[in-house]
Every structure is written in C-alpha cells, then in structure tokens.
Design a protein around this nucleic acid. Structure first.
Lengths: 248, 248
DNA sequence: GTGCTTATCGTCATAGTGACAGTAAGCACC
DNA sequence: GGTGCTTACTGTCACTATGACGATAAGCAC
C-alpha cells in the first residue's frame, strides 16, 4: 500500500466476479447448481452460477443476488460463506477476472431458473459435475472441488448440516444428510449418541414422526451451537486432504 | 456468468489488491509486520503491507512480491496461504478496492524494509496491533484478527508450526512456538507425548543439543505429514470462535 | 399376535487426554 | 567428584470419546 500503488488510475482494470458453489441434498444425492453458458467463452459449457460485482455492491451481496436469481431456494434458509478467491491471470481468456467464490448450502432444490445469458440451469449430482466428462468452464472444476471439500469439512466441526434438513428433523434424517455429504455410511447408533451428546447441536421439540415407518422418531430443531464439541469426524485423515485444502 | 456480464467494458474498474498478514515468533512474542503509511488516505497510520496486483500477475505471486519487498524473510522458509477477500464497497475511501488477504508465517524476523511509499516498517506484537490504541488503516484490524485466528487454528490440525522453528529443533522449541501462538502454557510432558505420537509430524535427526541448558534434548526435523493426526487441540471451544471464523 | 420396519439404549474394548509423579542427563560450583 | 541446579523425557491413572455391535422399543401391515 504505497503512494504510487494507491493511485487507481495507474492500474489496468481488473474485473471482479463472484461464483457460487451451491450445494443441496435431495433424493439421496449431493447436487450442485450449474448453468449452461449461452455465450463465448466456453459457450454451451456448464459452469457455476456467477457474475460481476456491481460498483456499490458488497461481495457477499453480489453472491446473494446471484443465489436469488438462479436457484429456487429460500435465502433465509441458506448458509453462505466465502470460499476462496481465484485470480490466475489467464483463467478468463478475454480479460483479467478475479473471482471470489462463495459456498452456499440450502435445503430445497426447487427447479432452478436459467438467469440472464444462461440457456439452462440444473441441479447436477456432484459426482457427475466433478467427473472429467463434464469439463466445466474456466477453473470451475477446481472451485467446485474446493467447495465440496469445504462443505464436507465443515460438517465435521459445525452444525451447518441442519440447514439442509427441515426446521424439524429426526436424527436419522440428519444422519442421511451426513451420509450423502460424506459419501459414506455411518453407524446409526453411534451417530445418534454423538449427535445427542454434542453440546447444543440439536434440541428435541417434543414431537415425533413416523414418516419413515418403524418406531416413531423424536423430532429435533437446530440448537445454538456454532461449533460442534466434540466434533463428528470422518474416517478420512488418510485420504485426499491436500495441504492447500486444510484451511480452517 | 452471462453474456452481458462478461463484457468487460461495461463494468466500472474495481481495483484488486493483496494484503499480507505476516506473522513471526521472536523473543517469545507473536509479531506481525506493519508498515506506516506515507500518503493519504490514512496517512501516517499503521497498516498491513500490501499493494495492487499487476496486470499479468497471479494473486499469490503479488503477495509473494510484497513479502520479498517488505519483510526480511527467506521466501523459501515461508508458509503462505490465502486468507480471505475483503470487498466492502466503502473500505477504501477513494475508489472500490477489493483486497485478497494472505497469511504468511516465517521464521526469521530480520529488520524489515519500508517499501515504496511507506515511511516505516516494523514487527509489532500482535497484542499491540490488535489493541484499539493502534487503529490500523482501512479494515486491516479485521483482516489481522482473521489472520491470527486462522494461524492459531492451523496449528491445531497441521504441522505448520515447524516453519517457525529452525531446520532442526527440539520438542521444547516447538512447544514454545505453540505457546506463543496460542498465548497459553502447555504441559511439556503431554505436549511431548502428543507431538511424538502424531503421525510423521516430526522426525528425530539423531542429534542433540544443550542450547537451553539442562539435559540434552533430541533434535527433530519436520516430517512429511500435511495434517496432524491426532490433532493438537487448544483448550478453547468455549471461547471466541465465532461462526464466521470456522472455515476449514 | 406375528413379523416387518426403524429408533434408541447399552456394553465393551480401545484410543486419546489432562494432571502429575518420577527418572535421566547435562552444567556450575565448590 | 559430589551437590544442586537446570531441562528432557518416561510412566501412571482416571476420564472421555470412539467404533463395533447386541438388545430392546414401538410403530405398522397383515
């Protein structure tokens, strides 16, 4: 931050955009919202929803605007956090674009709207989106991977999984959310114990439901904890965690 | 990412800068590198080192350039990672500046260089820098707080603490690094056990040293682990961890 | 009621932790 | 060369958390 550097006119314009890794669990799948581009570059390729930041617009505000535009989700029931910023000089073939990526988690996957300029918008299983077959535009493959890893990781240490459940949910529903996010089965009995023991993770409402058959299940609401103690850990640790992904 | 939005000329120029939260432990203190501004805005106020991103320059590259300019540290022995991006519309009084903050950890705190436009550069104890007395420029107070919290947190789950030690170090030296970073005393015996049990955190070199008096201590080198298992946890969890800070 | 489902509680061996006792091995000083 | 100082390291113990899995509870269909 030097005198010369702070003279704005001396700098070439860089564009600042936001991109959204919007995740949802539905029908037993982890889905990400993708849009199909209607123009060059990467015309007709699938991409993360995103767009440029307005002049007087905060970054998160820009991301939320996109969220409202493309995803049929309730912004009130949506968790959103900044993921990372991607600014390789050549990531956009036309001009320099620095993109601030946001991770969003929401419950309802209503049919999405193809926003302006997009010719399609769909919830796509993360497995498909991450496969090489799809070849997302720009560096969106990397952004998506980082976003998914961040979400998986946050499931361990925070109670965000509850935003992917309804306002009232059973332990089994919460467990299935974890199973879908982590792509691994969890022991129902141990999960039940950990989730009910973790400090103020979930609170019983008093009600019960039989919507999955079998013995009636207690209904719970999200508690007030912002961090899980003790945390719920994945098997993992021997796995794909690369150094750069460990951002806490 | 729509047609209209991807036409660069239709957008007002936003400036993109990088800011550096450069931390170091020296003389038993956790220090952050600050520069004193030589020009408006915030003239003569202390700020994090930073600067605008060059047209063909990657974000991390820009941050590393600043690191080399202002801090007398060996880039090879420096850990650097992206922290977060700050883009509130009014964070710079003159024009819109979106700043990508980087966290850097380095071992040697040589006397820093006041870069171009800065009239001074100093290693300042983090406690002083975080106190309201100093009133850092822009939103640098927030960035600093986020950076310090990230560093403290990464000490729990990754072996980065070793970059703040020499190439060979004793368990006690590593422990003091943790104590300084976390601002809390750790039981030497338990710390020793945990650190030597954690998978490939540190490896004995075979040598010993008596540089701190007493019984000769084993010397260690950093192992190859990228994540600590099991992790070293702070007391914390009941503490200042706000929801937004829990980014893993 | 029988048999199906799912929910929930209990048990047990094992791993990790904080607190802290005890031992090892240098050095300074006499 | 021993005494006492320092710091390094090993060990113990009670407690908590965990994975694996057995057992029981409580609905529904027939």
């Amino acid at each position: 931050m030097t005198t010369s550097h702070y003279n704005p006119r001396r700098h070439p314009p860089l564009e600042v955009a936001v991109d959204l890794v919007m995740l949802s669990v539905a029908q037993g799948r982890l889905d990400v919202l993708l849009v199909r581009r209607g123009a060059e570059p990467f015309e007709s390729r699938w991409a993360l929803p995103g767009g440029f930041v307005g002049e007087r617009e905060g970054l998160e505000q820009a991301a939320r605007r996109r969220l409202a535009q493309e995803a049929g989700v309730d912004p009130g029931q949506t968790h959103m956090e900044q993921l990372a910023t991607y600014g390789a000089p050549e990531r956009d073939p036309r001009t320099r674009v620095v993109s601030v990526a946001y991770l969003a988690l929401a419950r309802l996957a209503l049919p999405p709207q193809a926003g302006s300029g997009a010719i399609d918008a769909r919830w796509v299983p993360v497995g498909d989106a991450e496969s090489d077959a799809l070849e997302l535009a720009f560096d969106h493959h990397t952004i998506l991977r980082d976003g998914v890893e961040r979400a998986r990781s946050k499931f361990e240490y925070t109670p965000i999984a509850t935003v992917l459940c309804g306002p009232e949910f059973t332990v089994a529903e919460l467990r299935r959310t974890y199973e879908i996010m982590w792509g691994q089965e969890l022991d129902p009995r141990n999960f039940h114990r950990k989730v009910t023991n973790a400090e103020d993770f979930i609170r019983p409402t008093g009600g019960t439901t039989t919507r999955h058959g079998g013995r009636p299940a207690q209904l719970y609401r999200a508690g007030r904890a912002v961090a899980l103690y003790p945390p719920l850990l994945r098997d993992a640790h021997g796995e794909s965690t690369s150094a750069s992904q460990i951002a806490r």
